[in-house]
């Protein structure tokens, strides 16, 4: 009886240990810098399969996939971290309307490593965003077309967007960050898409 009890405790302890996270400050960090495709506003509207405004309903656990062929398990930089998000769609500006979509975001945190992606806004649960997405493959679901294809919406419904990321503005010599209502920007996109498809 005593032996059994000890065994139960050992198993329980092993289970708890395997589940316990390393303190954040002790985790190692893998940084990921991307070279992102440059798209004008018009190209981005063309390239994106889906343009939506939505809110992050839930964020799944981060998982790792090999970033290159024949990865070496000892080398964390041979893997990329992906996190799947469920997004409730409130507005579909381009593409097939869906109530919810799964969006794969690069970066995240595992038991022992923090994966940081430069240049891209990391969405969290409850956050609202305007997204330029392209259809995924067997590994990822929907992915962002380029680093400025995730545009977070603040509490007041405002977004910050480059002044060159508007129809006919890509040639402007200098870009300034401008703040505007997400609904107004969505209208700019819809109007442009309607004109482009009519041509």
């Amino acid at each position: 009886m005593k032996k059994k009890l000890v065994l139960v405790f050992v198993i329980l302890f092993a289970f708890l240990c395997s589940a316990c996270e390393i303190p954040r400050e002790e985790k190692s960090t893998v940084y990921s810098y991307g070279l992102w495709p440059y798209y004008t506003f018009e190209e981005a509207c063309e390239v994106a399969d889906l343009i939506i405004v939505g809110t992050v309903k839930s964020v799944d656990k981060t998982y790792l996939v090999p970033a290159i062929q024949n990865p070496n398990p000892k080398s964390p930089s041979h893997y990329m971290a992906l996190t799947d998000l469920t997004i409730s769609v409130e507005k579909t500006l381009k593409g097939v309307e869906q109530k919810e979509i799964r969006y794969t975001q690069e970066g995240g945190e595992t038991r022992d490593t923090i994966y940081v992606c430069d240049e891209i806004y990391e969405l969290k649960e409850g956050e609202r965003a305007l997204l330029f997405l392209s259809e995924g493959d067997s590994i990822i679901t929907w992915s962002v077309i380029t680093n400025y294809g995730v545009i977070p919406v603040d509490q007041n419904g405002k977004i910050t967007v480059s002044s060159t990321f508007f129809p006919g503005k890509s040639e402007d010599a200098r870009s300034v960050q401008t703040q505007m209502d997400v609904d107004a920007y969505a209208e700019v996109i819809s109007t442009y898409l309607a004109t482009a498809s009519a041509e």
């Binding site: 190692s28 940084y31 990921s32 991307g34 070279l35 495709p37 970033a67 930089s77 990329m80 294809g149």
Partner: peptide, 9 residues
């Protein structure tokens, strides 16, 4: 999404 990436630990 990116055309190229560098990851470093």
């Amino acid at each position: 999404s990116p055309i190229a990436r560098t990851r470093f630990n």
